[in-house]
Design a protein around this nucleic acid. Structure first.
Length: 770
DNA sequence: AGCTAAACTTAGCAGTCATATA
DNA sequence: TATATGACTGCTAAGTTTAGCT
């Protein structure tokens, strides 16, 4: 272990993070990411990741102490302001405030009908929003019958669920053993499911193929009209696949009107399913569409991937409604399985899927009051942990040395969950993909390197690979070594620990505390701390947003939220670099003109005397050549175009000499560029003066800066997914407060749906801190 | 105490939409 | 004007937690 000094280390150590090495530091430069994850591809591919190198050592020696001081520091600050945020929802008096915010984005343009330009934004009447967070809490204690007993509603009505249309056979035949075969509609549908995935990863996955084919054979056997198929290899789904490709193509070719019509029809069908009525309020439903039949697309190495997911009928569905509401119609000729009136539940409909026999639910959407309230509760709970975390850390640090193995395992796991933001890690069955979290880590998932480095390498949720090397406390290292030895290869490291047991223990510290709260807490804490550290009021708006993305990224790295880098990433980076050089080149020319006009300015404005970086002669030459080529091309194209037009108007074409003249001009330009390169001087246009040049240079500086930022951001982001942490882990109040402090519009950091989802967070005072 | 299942949150992928670019 | 890309959304799989049962 190397001890490496890091500038500003002390301010850094508060970070509870596993991997804060990746980004940060220099703004506006493309950082060489030597210490950044390098991944060939998303999952299961070998990756080289070196993390948490250096500065860790320092902080590992006394991590808790440091963190404690961090929390202690911040705590008092907010206690006051948060006052009302801490009041449990249960204590709030429900008041329906229907605020109608009429959003007129753009005035509708005069109805000049078939202009191809579509209206910029339709006038959107925002629905009545139940602003549950605007209630006053004059009720002292939990005297509000409705809340604390788990009752979620008194009145609930909705129109049920929307079923996918029945299958319409297309008649395109697949081949078996080289011959076209006729299938019953049911079999054709299943064959089509596979055909559609022919060129995807699923289609090439042997497990997927095997599971599909087994289920397909069963469907075939249901009717004697179907041929018998015994070998998947003899199946040729290509004709169907081709048909679907053609369909896609046709769909693309549809005119705007046709597309619009389809969209309108869809909306008309959805209409009655969009909202539920909850205690007199209109609330949006999230997923009222019943999942269509298809092939189960399990992630990673799922043993059941490819199995046939059956069509769902009303008979399998249970609806949750209040007794007084009318029961919506089921499909014609069908009946609902069951109607219940479960006031403790927030689901509107439920059914069992046939693959894993698990329940599916229809819930309200993310911006509904139920989801919003539970989201707020979640973040308040995470915030509450701040007040307990010191004690918890102290205790588990002590427990690391407990003589009871069970206790030591629990303490060690808590350390990992706290330090690395690992998931709890429930046990999984044979019928599921082999993935793990903290409690289910097995022998082979960690490698120990003396004196205290732990290398993690395992597949977590969604079979996303977690690869990380961390320096841990000596006692943690010792424990892990011992546990590993005790359990042996293939076995769970924490063999005496279950998630239930862990959570029970956690609950003793604080009601409602469970393993996942640590993830939320650490994510939000990190975000707050990084934002404070990275943003400055002197930054431009671009810089501020970059800082925001950095903070966001830090959290995403901590939580291991990944995405596949786009295939063209490298190319795109090169393109940006080129654009940057072109701008710099322009700037250089302006500077030269400036000096020609005013020699003294070099002295007065020494920063203007500095040459542009990485502008090499070879590059300039090449760039000039390309410029000339483009100009020639442009001249020709323009000439041809003009002639075409003249011809169609029955007029005489332009004389060839016209083109010659133009090309001559380009030649002159070439000569000028050549000369400029040779002499290093740039001719000054007659209309130019010092002021104009300075203004132009300033413009270019801005552009250069913006491009640099763009490049940095892109590079740092290429395989990290920011969305998941933004949506689920970062307390939106942190972001709201930051946006206000730094005068950044919320829309710059939240998409429209997220703005709506987190509306409740907008009521905080400006100085709110997590 | 351990197991199962219900209920709800979290997650990446895959389409769709919007916008920049050629 | 068409195409390519990236952003955003919808979808649904895959987690966590807790309650209830044996």
């Amino acid at each position: 272990m190397t001890k490496v000094v890091k500038e500003e280390s002390s301010s850094d150590e508060d970070i509870p993070l596993a991997r804060h090495s990746s980004s940060s530091t220099k703004p506006q430069t493309i950082k060489k990411k030597l210490d950044t994850p390098v991944k060939a591809n998303k999952r299961n591919l070998s990756t080289v990741k070196k993390q948490r190198t250096t500065e860790a050592s320092d902080d590992d020696d006394i991590p808790l102490a440091r963190r404690r001081s961090a929390t202690a520091k911040e705590q008092p600050i907010k206690e006051e302001s948060s006052d009302d945020d801490d009041v449990p929802l249960a204590k709030r008096k429900p008041v329906v405030t229907q605020t109608k915010s009429l959003k007129r984005a753009t005035p509708v343009k005069a109805e000049s009908a078939p202009t191809n330009k579509k209206p910029k934004k339709e006038v959107k009447v925002e629905e009545d929003v139940y602003r549950w967070w605007e209630q006053e809490m004059e009720n002292g204690a939990g005297d509000n019958g409705l809340d604390d007993n788990g009752i979620k509603w008194t009145q609930l009505s909705h129109n049920g669920v929307l079923f996918p249309p029945e299958y319409v056979p297309h008649g395109i035949q697949m081949k078996y053993d080289g011959k076209s075969v006729k299938l019953t509609p049911e079999a054709e549908e299943v064959a089509s499911f596979f055909a559609a995935l022919l060129e995807s990863d699923h289609g090439a996955n042997p497990t997927f193929q095997k599971n599909f084919f087994e289920d397909f054979q069963k469907v075939l056997a249901k009717s004697p009209k179907n041929p018998k198929m015994t070998s998947f290899e003899k199946c040729d789904f290509r004709p169907m696949w081709q048909k679907f490709e053609l369909d896609k193509e046709r769909k693309k070719q549809m005119t705007k009107e046709e597309k619009l019509k389809i969209k309108e029809e869809r909306i008309a069908v959805e209409q009655s399913f969009i909202y539920a009525n909850v205690d007199g309020r209109k609330e949006k439903i999230g997923n009222f569409r019943i999942e269509p039949p298809g092939l189960f697309r399990g992630r990673g190495d799922h043993p059941k991937t490819g199995r046939l997911k059956l069509r769902v009928y009303p008979e399998q569905i249970t609806l949750n409604l209040s007794k007084d509401s009318k029961i919506p119609p089921a499909l014609p000729g069908h009946k609902w399985g069951k109607i219940v009136h479960d006031q403790q539940a927030t689901w509107l409909a439920t059914w069992k899927e046939n693959i894993n026999d698990t329940s599916k639910y229809v819930f309200l959407s993310a911006n509904s009051s139920w989801k919003g309230q539970s989201d707020m509760k979640k973040f308040d709970k995470a915030r509450e942990l701040k007040g307990h975390v010191d004690r918890i850390r102290k205790n588990y640090t002590n427990d690391l040395k407990d003589k009871l193995t069970e206790t030591r395992q629990r303490a060690t796991a808590m350390y990992l969950i706290d330090r690395l933001a690992l998931r709890a890690g429930n046990e999984k069955g044979d019928e599921e993909a082999d993935t793990v979290g903290c409690c289910s880590l097995r022998y082979e998932h960690i490698t120990l390197e003396s004196p205290n480095t732990v290398h993690f390498d395992f597949l977590g949720k969604d079979s996303i690979r977690y690869e990380n090397s961390v320096q841990v406390e000596t006692q943690v290292f010792k424990n892990l070594r011992l546990f590993q030895k005790q359990v042996g290869p293939g076995n769970a490291i924490f063999d005496r620990l279950t998630t239930t047991g862990l959570n029970k223990h956690l609950n003793n510290y604080m009601p409602g505390l469970s393993a996942k709260v640590f993830r939320t807490y650490n994510a939000s804490f990190t975000c707050q701390q990084q934002l404070d550290k990275l943003t400055s009021k002197t930054d431009t708006i671009h810089d501020r947003i970059l800082s925001f993305n950095r903070a966001n990224r830090e959290v995403a790295v901590l939580c291991n939220h990944q995405r596949a880098a786009s295939k063209s990433h490298g190319q795109q980076m090169m393109k940006i670099a080129d654009k940057l050089r072109a701008t710099k080149y322009q700037r250089m020319k302006l500077r030269k003109q400036l000096f020609a006009l005013d020699k003294s300015i070099k002295k007065r404005r020494p920063n203007l005397a500095v040459d542009e970086s990485d502008l090499e002669d070879d590059w300039i030459k090449e760039y000039d050549i390309q410029t000339i080529e483009k100009e020639r091309e442009k001249a020709k194209v323009k000439f041809d175009k003009q002639n075409d037009r003249l011809k169609s108007e029955g007029k005489a074409p332009l004389p060839k000499s016209e083109l010659q003249d133009k090309l001559k001009k380009v030649d002159e330009l070439k000569a000028q560029l050549d000369k400029e390169r040779k002499t290093g001087k740039v001719e000054v246009a007659a209309t130019m003066n010092v002021e104009k040049l300075l203004a132009k240079i300033e413009k270019l500086d801005e552009r250069i800066n913006a491009t640099k930022i763009q490049a940095t951001d892109k590079e740092e982001n290429k395989e990290i997914s920011l969305g998941t942490s933004k949506m689920n882990y970062i307390d939106p109040r942190i972001i709201v407060a930051w946006c206000r402090t730094y005068e950044v519009p919320m829309e710059k950091v939240y998409s429209k749906t997220l703005v709506e989802k987190f509306r409740w967070a907008e009521t905080i005072p400006d100085d709110w801190k997590f």
